[in-house]
Design a protein around this nucleic acid. Structure first.
Lengths: 216, 216, 216, 216
DNA sequence: GATGAATGAGCCTTCATTCAT
DNA sequence: CATGAATGAAGGCTCATTCAT
C-alpha cells in the first residue's frame, strides 16, 4: 500500500532509463503475456515474476495486488494502439472504401497478430470482475474506436460511395468480425490444428462488407 | 431472515426432500446462473449447490466433477439451440437468404437474449485454461454451428442467390457479429446505460450481409 | 445403535437358514474380501454393500459402523481356523518333524492360499486402531497358535528328535516366515509379475528349519 | 497452556523464522512419526506440519505431495540402512556365517528397535491402496535387501560353508522372521506387557538358520 | 425390513500475500 | 531495493452416516 507505484501514474518513460525504473514496465510486459495466455484467475503471480526475471516479492513492490497489476496491464498497453488508428484516418486521403479496408487490415496487423490482441480478449472475459476498469476501457478504446470507424462510414455516405445506413451500427459491424476473430483465434487455437486462414477471412469480410454497403 | 433457525422441536421439518428426478435439472439451472456470473474457474461448487437448494455432496451425486457439470450445462442449453437450428434448416423450404435471416434472428432470440449467452462468453474467456472443456465445446457447438451455416450458404450459391464465395469463411462471417455482440453486450452492459439497440444491429447486419453476398 | 445386531453374538447359524438371517453373514463375507483388498481406511462401505448384493443402508441395519463391521469380520473368520489346527495336532500320531511339516503346510493351505490370509494382514495393519480387537485376536489366535506349535516342538525335544532350544521362541520361528509370506505376498503381488514361488519357499523353510533344529 | 495467545503488542515475536536448510529434515522427521502412528492414508498433512512446527503450506514448499513426502521418508530412513548393509557386506572379510549374523543383528538394531520399523509395517498394510508407493518401496528397499542377502548366501555356498540351497529363497528366509517381528512387535506391543524377548528371538533364529543351512 | 438420496465434515492441494532477512 | 520462505484461507472432492420413502 504505502510505497507501491502504479506505473500508469508516471510519465511515459523512455526505454533507455536506468534499469531500476524499467522494472515496472518489464513486469507489465510479462503480465500481459501471462494474463493473455491463461486469463486472470488462472494466472499465477509466480509465473509473471519468473517471466519478468524477478521474484514474487518484487512484483508487490510495484503493484498492490494481482488486480492492480491487471489494471496496469490493460491501461498501459491498449491506449497507444487506438491513437495510432486515429492518426492513420486523419492523414488518409483516398476513398472511404480504401480507408475502411486499410483500417481493418491495420487493426489486424497491430492487434490481431500481436500480443496486444490479448487485451480485448481479457476485457471481455474479466469485465464483470473489474467494473471501473471496464468503464475506462470502454471509453478509451471501444468508444474511440467506434467513433473513428463511424467517421469513415459517414465520409463514405457523404461522398456517395456508401448507402445511407445507420452509421454507428455499420461501424460496429465493420469491426465485430475482427473482434470476434481476435478472441476466437486465441481461444480455439488448439482445436484448429490446420490453423485459421486469416487472409481469406479478412479478404472475404472486406469483400462482403464493402459490397454490402456499396451504393447500389 | 423470516425463518431464522431456532432450536425448537416443534416442526420436525425434514432435513431434506427426496427429489431424484428434479434435482439434475435444478442443479444445471443453478450452475448456468453461477457459471455465467463468475466464470468457470471462479465458480464454487458450494455456490451452485446453495443456489440449487442442496449441499455440495448432492451435486456430486449427479455430476462427477465441476467439468462434468459444465458439460451438462452446455449440453442442455446451447446444444439444443444448435439442434433446433439444424431442424429449422432441414425443414425450411424458402430461399437461402430467408433462411440466413431466420437463423440469425433465432440465434439471438434463443441465445443473445437469454442467460445462455453467458456460455459462449465464458468459453472465450477461459478456453486456454481448460483445454478439455474447450475441445468439447468446439466440437459440440462451434463446429456444428459452422457446418449448419455453411450448408445454408452453399444452398444459396447453388440456387444462384449468392455469389460464389468461400463457404466456410462466409459462414463464420454470418455469425461473428452475433458472437461478438453476445460477448460485448454482457461485458459492457454497465457502460451502455441506453442499452444496445439490438434490433437495428441485427437488421443492419442482415441487410449488409445479404447485400454483400447477393449475386450481382 | 438401537436394533443393530452383531452377528458374533448369535449362535453359529447353519447356512441353510432363511435368507433374512443369512444377510449378516453375507455382508461379513463381502467385507472380508474388500477389507482384504483395500485395507480398512480405503474400504468404502458402498463397495462392501455392492459385493454383498445389498445397499449401504442395509449394512447399517446390521452393523453400527464401519468399525463394528471390521471387528465382526475378524472375529467371525479366524477362530474356526485355529481350532482346525489344534484338532490336527491332537489326532496326529507320527513324528514331531512330520507334524511340524504338516502344520506348516496346512496353515498355508487353509490360510495362505485363501481369503482368510487377509485377516492376519489386516490385524497387523490396523492393530493400533482397534486395541480391544487386537487383544481379542492376540489371545484367540496368536497365543493359541503359538501354544499349539510350542507343544509340538516340546514333543520333538522330549522324543530326542530336536535339540533343546527355547520352545516358545522356536515355535514363533517356525511360523514367522509363513506370517511374513502371507502379508508380503498380498502386499507386493503387483511388483512380482513372475509370482511368488510358494512351493520352493515352503520346502526350503521346512528343510532349513528341520535341519536347524534337528539333534546333531 | 503456559504461553496462551493474548493479543498483547509487547512481544513483536516474528510470525515465522526462516530456516530453509533445517526445514526439510524437520518435516521428514515429523512425517516419520505421524506416518508411523497413523499409517499413510490416515495421516493428515496438517498433523505433520503442526508437529514440525510449520503450516501446511510450508510442507508443500519442500514436498510436492503426500506421496512425495512419504518417499522422502523412505529414502532418508530405510534406504540408508540398506546402503549401510551393502557397505558392510562389501568390506566384510570374515566368514559368510558371521556376515549373515551381523546383517541380521544390524537390521534389528537400525530398524527393529527404532521408529523406522513403522515404515515396513505401514507398507505391508497399505500397499494395495497405493501401488505407486509400493512399487517405489519394493524397488528401493525390498529388492535391494534381497539382493544383498542373496549375495551373502551365495558367498557362503561358494566358500563351502553353506549347503547348495536356492539362494533367493534362502535369502528371504534369513530376513522374514525379522520382517514379521518388526510388524508383530508393533502391532501386539500392548498385548505383551512382558515385552518381546528380542535377544532370545534373534539368537535362536541365527542359531537355527545357520545350523539349518550349514554344510553337513 | 430395505432402499438410496442427501448430508456435512474433512483433507489434500493451491496460491495471493506478507515479511524476516 | 530484492528476495523467497512462510503463511493461511479457500475450494474441489470423498465418503461414512442418516433418514425420508
Amino acid at each position: 500500500m504505502s510505497h507501491a507505484v502504479t506505473p500508469s501514474k508516471r510519465q511515459p518513460k523512455p526505454r533507455w532509463k536506468r534499469r531500476k525504473d524499467a522494472r515496472p514496465g518489464e513486469i507489465v510486459a510479462a503480465a500481459l503475456e501471462v494474463f493473455g495466455e491463461r486469463g486472470f484467475a488462472a494466472t499465477k503471480l509466480a509465473d509473471v515474476a519468473r517471466r519478468a526475471g524477478v521474484t514474487k516479492g518484487t512484483v508487490y513492490l510495484y503493484f498492490d495486488s494481482k488486480e492492480a497489476l491487471f489494471k496496469a496491464v490493460v491501461r498501459e498497453t491498449i491506449v497507444p494502439v487506438i491513437a495510432q488508428g486515429e492518426a492513420l484516418a486523419q492523414s488518409f486521403t483516398g476513398s472511404a472504401r480504401e480507408l475502411v479496408e486499410q483500417l481493418v487490415r491495420e487493426y489486424w496487423r497491430l492487434v490481431g497478430e500481436t500480443a496486444v490482441a490479448d487485451i480485448p480478449k481479457l476485457m471481455m472475459a474479466e469485465a464483470a470482475t473489474f467494473p471501473e476498469l471496464t468503464r475506462f476501457y470502454y471509453e478509451e478504446v471501444v468508444t474511440r474506436g467506434h467513433r473513428l470507424m463511424a467517421g469513415v462510414i459517414e465520409r463514405g455516405i457523404k461522398s456517395g460511395e456508401f448507402r445511407p445506413v445507420d452509421v454507428k451500427v455499420a461501424a460496429k459491424l465493420a469491426m465485430s468480425p475482427l473482434m470476434h476473430a481476435v478472441v476466437a483465434k486465441r481461444a480455439f487455437a488448439s482445436c484448429m490444428p490446420e490453423g485459421f486462414d486469416v487472409k481469406k477471412y479478412l479478404d472475404t469480410h472486406i469483400d462482403l462488407y464493402l459490397h454490402g454497403i456499396a451504393k447500389q
